[in-house]
């Protein structure tokens, strides 16, 4: 993920509301090692494989995040409606999205544990939009997130939206996760 504050650029992957962690990474796949460099790629392969295919990659649907047989996605930014990441506490959820190549999410709201895991683990940046953008933005649109001015630009549609500042978690996000933040503040000894 981007711990400097440079713009995040890439293609949008659009989803609806209440995308729970079983849809992000189905429970049957939680068995793979996150440390083994080869085995962990399976999380990229199966990321978002629990989303009903008609609702995967809106508005048209029927678009998997990663193509058959691949572990990397062509998409970089998820755009979603309310309550993204609800359900279980599995950190494998933000991890699988990062492994697939997702760098940021823009949602109108998040479930608490998913949001926290994304930030503390430094997997990706969960940005909040002021309005639900999942009906405005189309899967495949080229997006640019301006982290300094809190703006999202849809290059394809030539539209600009304000997004919310990160608030109290900004320091942890910019440190790159809870361990890096704690080291900077002397709570955990330097490595």
């Amino acid at each position: 993920m981007s711990i400097n504050q440079e713009p995040i650029k890439g293609k949008a992957f659009v989803l609806g509301k209440n995308i729970d962690t079983d849809q992000i990474i189905p429970a049957a796949h939680l068995v793979y090692s996150l440390e083994d460099p080869e085995e962990r790629k399976l999380y990229g392969k199966y990321a978002l494989s629990g989303v009903p295919i008609a609702e995967s990659g809106l508005p048209h649907g029927n678009i998997p995040l990663t193509k058959e047989g691949e572990t990397d996605s062509e998409f970089k930014i998820i755009v979603a409606s309310d309550n993204f990441g609800c359900g279980s506490s599995r950190e494998h959820a933000p991890a699988s999205l990062e492994i697939a190549g997702i760098e940021a999410i823009i949602s109108s709201s998040y479930a608490r544990i998913f949001y926290r895991n994304s930030v503390d683990g430094g997997f990706l940046i969960p940005f909040e939009s002021y309005e639900d953008l999942s009906t405005e933005i189309h899967t495949g649109d080229e997006l640019e997130i301006d982290q300094v001015n809190h703006q999202l630009k849809n290059v394809t549609q030539d539209k600009v939206y304000k997004i919310k500042p990160l608030g109290s978690v900004a320091d942890i996000v910019h440190a790159g996760g809870i361990f890096e933040y704690a080291r900077q503040n002397g709570m955990v000894p330097a490595k």
Binding site: R90, R116, N117, D120, I178
Partner: peptide
């Protein structure tokens, strides 16, 4: 409930941040 990273942080420090 918390994630793996937070759990690892507690394993080492016995502490965690809470809002």
């Amino acid at each position: 409930g918390i994630g793996n990273t937070d759990a690892a942080f507690i394993m080492g420090t016995g502490k965690l941040w809470v809002k």
